[in-house]
Structures are given as C-alpha cells and as structure tokens.
Simulated scan of single mutants.
Amino acid sequence: MTALLETRHLNRMFGALQATTDVSFRLERGARHALIGPNGAGKTTFINLLTGVLSPTSGEILLDGKAITGMKREARVQRGLVRTFQINQLFGGLTVIESLALVVAERRGEGWNPFRSIGRARGIDTEIADLLRGFGLESVAGETCSDLPYGKQRLLEIALAIALKPRVLLLDEPAAGVPEADRQEVLSRLAALPSDVAILLIEHDMDLVFTFANRISVLVSGGLFAEGTVDEIAHDPRVKDVYLGGGQHG
C-alpha cells in the first residue's frame, strides 16, 4: 500500500553536521502517529524538511506517491500538507472569527474583504460556525487572537490548520505551555480531529503520546532509532534507555 506521506533515505547536512541521517519514514492514511526523541534528536529539522522550510541534502519526500521534494511550502499546503507550530503563529490583530474567515476564504480562492459581513460570504459562515463549535471557540469568537487565554490560542491554531482541509497534519507540541486547567480540553479536541486526516504528532509529553498515537517513531541523533506500536515502544528497553528513562511508562 502506498503511504500518504513518505520519505526515502532523507539526509540533511549543516556544513559538517549531519542533522538528518538516512530517514525512511511512512505515514499511512488516517494515521495517528507520534514522533518522539530527546532534545537535539532532529525532530524540528525533519518537520522542516517535510514542509519545505529546509531542502534535503539528499533523499526524497513523497505525498500520495508523488515527489514533492523540491516543491515550495505554499504548494505543499495546497496539496494538503499542513502544520502547526510549537510557538503559535496567529493573526494577532484579528478576532477569532475573522482569522477563520480569512483562512477559509483564501483556501477557496475567494479572497476576504474585512468590510464585508462574514455571513454574506457564500457558505463560509456555515464552515466557520462548525469550526468554532468543533474547537470550543464559540464563546471567544469576537475576541482578538492576542487576547485569548493560551489554551484557546492553541485550539485556534489547530482550527486554522483544519480550515485548510489537510490530508496530512503535522502537530508540533500542541499542548506545550498550556496551563493544566485547560490541558484536558486541548487533549479532547485532538482526540476528535477528523479520522480521515493523517496526523503526525511531535511531542515530549509521553502521556499525551501514549493516549493519542497508535504508532510511534523514535528519532535519535537525526536517524530513526525505533518504530512500532505504542506497546512495543513503551516496552522497548533501548527506547527507555535513550528517552523514557528506564522503567517509566511500563
């Protein structure tokens, strides 16, 4: 079966430093896949290669069986490869509803006029209402993004990513920095993401990883160190030694 997203022998050098080493990786359709590893393992570099922020020194990246290795970032998004960031990338001066309207309108190629009533945009108001409800943002729809509590900012960023209609969604530490009181809502919204979207979760929180993912890849020193089911990774003594801290998480 053809993977939805795949890398073949991916390498990235920064001068003499090998940041990504011969990574061959597969993300299946509808996957809930986590990418973990210690600090400095190369997770951010790998995600930047997938999304076109960086170009590989060698190797290949395929989306739905077609090479996207040299494709620009915007073109990858249009093909359905979307990411969130560890640090929020929001439209600070816009309201929640304006931000969603902007993304939905741009995705449809209709453009967005801030002076036009959102409700008059063809079908956009219905889609926005669904997103607001689906991510628990109805009560803050009219608030400016920069004024939102941090947990709501994280939810909005994920909502904006879903508004792009991704086939592959890369979530970079979606619960990072979220206060404990808001954390459960973020986790429940993640669990409810559309099942037809393949998700790669980059995360340090192993409780979240073990709850969310059904498959885990472990990156160490830029290379794939181990891969398997949640149970296989949780009980792999090699993984415990390099990452989990022997004896933790079963």
Rank of each mutant, 00 (worst) to 15 (best):
L90V: 14
G119T: 14
L160P: 08
D182L: 12
M206Y: 11
I47F: 05
E127Q: 08
Y150C: 06
T211G: 10
L5A: 08
L50F: 11
S117F: 12
L102W: 07
G80S: 09
V197D: 09
I202D: 00
A175L: 04
A198F: 04
V220N: 09
A101Q: 10
F135L: 07
H204L: 14
N214E: 14
I97M: 15
V53S: 02
P179D: 07
G142L: 04
L50N: 07
G250F: 12
T95D: 05
R154E: 02
V239D: 01
A3I: 02
H204N: 13
K165W: 10
A41S: 15
F115L: 14
G246W: 07
T2H: 09
Q86A: 11
R122A: 14
A105Q: 15
D196E: 15
G42T: 00
E74I: 06
G250D: 13
G30S: 01
K72A: 15
D241P: 03
T211M: 11
L160D: 11
S221A: 13
L50K: 10
H204P: 08
V23W: 03
T7H: 01
G15R: 02
M13D: 05
G40C: 04
A16Q: 08
G70H: 15
W112A: 02
T126P: 00
V218N: 01
L50G: 13
T57V: 04
G222A: 04
G80Q: 07
P194S: 03
L10G: 09
V242I: 14
A234S: 12
H249M: 11
N214Y: 03
G15C: 07
R238D: 11
R32F: 08
Q89K: 15
E180H: 14
V53K: 06
L244I: 00
V239P: 04
